[in-house]
Design a protein around this nucleic acid. Structure first.
Lengths: 142, 142
DNA sequence: GTACTTGCAAAATATTTGCGTTTAT
DNA sequence: ATAAACGCAAATATTTTGCAAGTAC
């Protein structure tokens, strides 16, 4: 999704478009590095020095509520944000903390989940997080 | 897994078995309510009043490292612990915070993940967390 | 006996909140 | 004009850590 699309969607829902929100949206929508709130804060701060961390938190929460971001809670104690909201796996390296995306190509794990929706649970979203060691850390013998 | 099995496994690995560890193990190994560290602390405290929260944290981390517990990071900002370490889904209700387990019966989502292990990532474990509203909250019209 | 574990309190970290001011609509 | 959003700082919450005392082996 591009920035203008996102802003249109938000406007239609009656969300006010402030400069702070513009810059956060611009920063996160093409960022596949899974930044945490503070990462986004520092990145945006370069272009909009007066922005506050609290506003970044609030904006990221807003974007997640509106379905434009996936929020991923990891064992590093932080929330990480991903603008790619289609089903995919997250590989989390327990050594270096890097998160790699792996798109689900041949088999949608949602299939099995969807079956259970009928059991009463209303599904909004889901995350798959795989823990282990990435290629680089593995080769270092961690 | 029962308590004695767990203790044997730990002993074989050279882990010292203290009363604190015994009580934490006893408390968590048959607890499918996905307690957080503080929940375990209060539960154990009833039987071992002098135990400290720090010890509970350390013990839960130990048990997770040894593969006896699954640690699940959730958007409530806490880590939750699950003694059932076989592949299954966690349904997290964003309204009441309840976590329901759904066992994976007919199709193992790990299959797809395992394929990618060859791509270099060394897999230790994984979690599937489904976000939404549980039957109860849904019927209340949340 | 010794290395590891504990309890306690303090520190560190992440996130949320209260509030007076500013701003998008 | 007004309801919402902002920045700041303080508050809250979770988890970690340093250290002296205690304990499993």
């Amino acid at each position: 999704m591009n920035k203008d699309n996102a802003i249109s969607i938000l406007r239609e829902k009656g969300v006010k478009i402030t400069p702070q929100r513009r810059f956060v949206i611009e920063s996160i929508l093409d960022d596949r590095t899974h930044p945490c709130a503070e990462d986004v804060y520092f990145k945006v701060k370069k272009k909009l020095p007066e922005i506050s961390l609290a506003t970044v938190y609030q904006t990221l929460d807003l974007l997640e509520r509106e379905g434009l971001l996936l929020k991923i809670s990891l064992p590093d104690g932080k929330s990480h944000f991903d603008p790619f909201v289609k089903p995919h796996f997250h590989f989390y390296c327990e050594n270096c903390g890097k998160i790699e995306d792996r798109d689900v190509m041949n088999e949608n794990p949602l299939k099995d989940i969807i079956k259970r929706e009928r059991a009463g649970f209303e599904i909004k979203n889901y995350t798959v997080i795989v823990y282990g060691f990435c290629k680089k850390c593995k080769s270092k013998g961690v």
